[in-house]
Structures are given as structure tokens and as C-alpha cells.
């Protein structure tokens, strides 16, 4: 069994479902964009279901008001904690279905404003690997992902930076390529996120002009993600760089409140770790940490997350290399 086939094994793929954390760093808001799922080049095996729970913590003291970096003594440190349930099912090793549901709690350490808590958005992804070429120690693969997300509860979006999320329903299309040489790999992806308009509890609001409606235009967004590192039996260690760009929206004016349709951008760097079969076959532990190095209308968040996942194999426990190899043909 070579590294590639191991790494393409279902057990490894669980780690990939840790994208919820990114969500928590994304905006001034707690929740942000959508509960994202897979952005890495790892697939579950056929009829394997990997599920688990993840805790995330994100906080910021400084934020970008437009492009101006500042703090706010009336917020102190704004923190978001989340507990997410996630899963990834292998229809076969070229087609996976993923979901995520986060429960979120927000809090400001100073000032008067009360934090919010509740269930945020359900996100679903279809992940498809149409191309996989292997020669010697090289593997090159291409992925296409379609995602959708929608709020599960009637939470308030118009309460930034302490709202749970932005309430937009989203449709995402992601293209991703992965190149692996031995145990070393690099993955690059680009995602277009279509975001629906939202409604807020007001009859009018001001952006850069007055709007006499309760509907808010939400600009679409673009995400570019690079990751690279080491995959080997039991371990994944990777560095991640991520750029979120909102394709429109407006800047927070001086000393104003944030608004859901602000132009929220962020550049984040982080590491992601996963260790599997620690105590028990099929059990894996995952953790990551991110920091925000540049942004606009966003908090300069530092975030970490940790999760535990387990693979349930239908109908038989842990089909491994054999099936993988046969399916490959």
C-alpha cells in the first residue's frame, strides 16, 4: 500500500471537515459566511461515513473599520465559540457528500451589548473527483465541488459584530487541484460563492445611500485557498493560506456600526493537524490554528479548533486498500 492510497483512504478524509473554523474567523460577525466543508484533496471510501464534533474558538480585539485598523473599548475582545457536528459520506471514492451544522455563541468582553447564541447555517457539499492521474510517486487530481448553505434558525443578522451569521443562503462552486509527490502535497482551490439577499428587521437603512426596503443586497464572494504539507500514515500536517474577498459592498464609515453588506475581506494563515487511529481504529483527532494577517471590515481574528471524528463503515467495517485499488481502475 503506497502513501497515496492510504491518504485517499476514507479514514483520512475526516480531517478535511474542519472548515467550520474558518467560518468563525471570517467576518466581524461571529458566524459569517457559511459552514464550509471540504477544501482538501481527500476522499472518503465507498459507503464509509465519517462523523464527529468540533469545538472552535475565535477572537479579536482589533478590527478593520474599512481599511483603518482600530480597537474598541466598548467591545473589548469579541469572541465566538462554536460546537459543530459534521459528516462526510462516501457514495464512492470519487463522490462524497458532506454536511455541517454549527451552534454558535458570541460575546463581547467589554461594553453593554449582549452576545447571541444559537444554531447557525446548515451547509452541504457534493465533492467529486473527475480526474486522478498517477505515475511513479506522483499523483495529480482534480476536484469539483458544489455547496449550498442556509440558516436553520431565525437568528438576527443585523447585529454585527455579535450576530451569529449573515443569513444569506449561498451556492458555491469550487474547483480544486492537488499534486502529491510521495508524502508531500500541495492543493489549490478557488471558490465562487453566490449569496442571496437577506431581510432585516427594519423598514429602511443606509449604506452609502438610503434604501426604503427591508431587503439587503448581499454581494457575492470569492475564496482562494492554498495548502501544502505532509500526508503519511496516521498524520497530516499542513500549512494553509486563505483569501476571502467580497465582490462588492461598502466600507464601515468612521466610528459607525458594521453592516451585513460591508465589503468583508480577510487574508488568513494557519496550520492544520490530524492524527488518526490514536486510541482506536477509525478514531481521529484534529486541530488547527489560524491568524488573520490582513483584512477589511473584519475582525483581526485568531482562531483555533479541535475535533474528534469516527468512521462508520457500511456495511462492513473498514474496507481499505483492496477496495480502493479495485475502484481506482
Amino acid at each position: 500500500m503506497n502513501h497515496q492510497s492510504l491518504c485517499k483512504d476514507g479514514r483520512v478524509s475526516c480531517v478535511s471537515i474542519r472548515r467550520i473554523v474558518l467560518v468563525l474567523m471570517v467576518c466581524l460577525s461571529a458566524g459569517a459566511i457559511q459552514a464550509q466543508t471540504d477544501i482538501d484533496a481527500i476522499m472518503m471510501s465507498k459507503r464509509n461515513f465519517c462523523t464527529g464534533i468540533m469545538y472552535g474558538n475565535s477572537s479579536w480585539t482589533n478590527y478593520w473599520e474599512g481599511t483603518l485598523k482600530r480597537n474598541n473599548e466598548n467591545l473589548g475582545s469579541v469572541s465566538t465559540q462554536s460546537v459543530s457536528i459534521m459528516g462526510n459520506y462516501g457514495v464512492n471514492r470519487r463522490l462524497n457528500l458532506l454536511f455541517g451544522i454549527p451552534y454558535i455563541q458570541t460575546k463581547a468582553s467589554a461594553g453593554q451589548l449582549k452576545g447571541h447564541n444559537g444554531i447557525q447555517d446548515l451547509s452541504l457539499w457534493v465533492k467529486w473527483m473527475p480526474i486522478e492521474k498517477e505515475w511513479g510517486k506522483h499523483i495529480f487530481s482534480v476536484y469539483v465541488l458544489g455547496g449550498a448553505s442556509a440558516p436553520l434558525t431565525n437568528y438576527v443578522a443585523d447585529y454585527l459584530p455579535l450576530s451569529l451569521g449573515l443569513r444569506s443562503k449561498t451556492l458555491s462552486l469550487r474547483g480544486m487541484v492537488d499534486y502529491q509527490y510521495g508524502s508531500w502535497f500541495t492543493t489549490f482551490s478557488g471558490t465562487y460563492i453566490h449569496r442571496s439577499n437577506i431581510t432585516i428587521d427594519r423598514m429602511a437603512y443606509y449604506t452609502t445611500e438610503m434604501h426604503y426596503t427591508n431587503e439587503v443586497y448581499m454581494p457575492d464572494a470569492l475564496q482562494v485557498n492554498w495548502r501544502g504539507g505532509f500526508r503519511d500514515k496516521g498524520w497530516i500536517v499542513e500549512a494553509v493560506a486563505d483569501q476571502w474577498t467580497t465582490l462588492g459592498g461598502f466600507d464601515i464609515t468612521r466610528n459607525n456600526m458594521p453592516f451585513p453588506s460591508n465589503r468583508m475581506n480577510a487574508t488568513r494563515l494557519g496550520i492544520n493537524l490530524k492524527y488518526e487511529d490514536v486510541f482506536l481504529d477509525g478514531l481521529s483527532l484534529t486541530g488547527n490554528a489560524f491568524t488573520t494577517v490582513a483584512g477589511r471590515n473584519m475582525g483581526q481574528a485568531n482562531a483555533f479548533a479541535a475535533g474528534v471524528f469516527y468512521i462508520i463503515d457500511f456495511p462492513a467495517k473498514k474496507k481499505k486498500t483492496k477496495e480502493v485499488s479495485t475502484e481506482k481502475q
Binding site: 449550498a148 443562503k169 451556492l171 462552486l173 453566490h194 442571496s196 439577499n197 434604501h211 426604503y212 426596503t213 431587503e215 439587503v216 443586497y217 448581499m218
Partner: peptide
């Protein structure tokens, strides 16, 4: 779905 969901004109 993407295309049909794209009409985001506000009614003011």
C-alpha cells in the same frame, strides 16, 4: 440554481 438565484435587484 445559481443562475436563477442571481436576481438580486432590490425593490425600493
Amino acid at each position: 440554481l445559481l443562475i436563477t438565484a442571481c436576481n438580486k435587484q432590490l425593490e425600493d
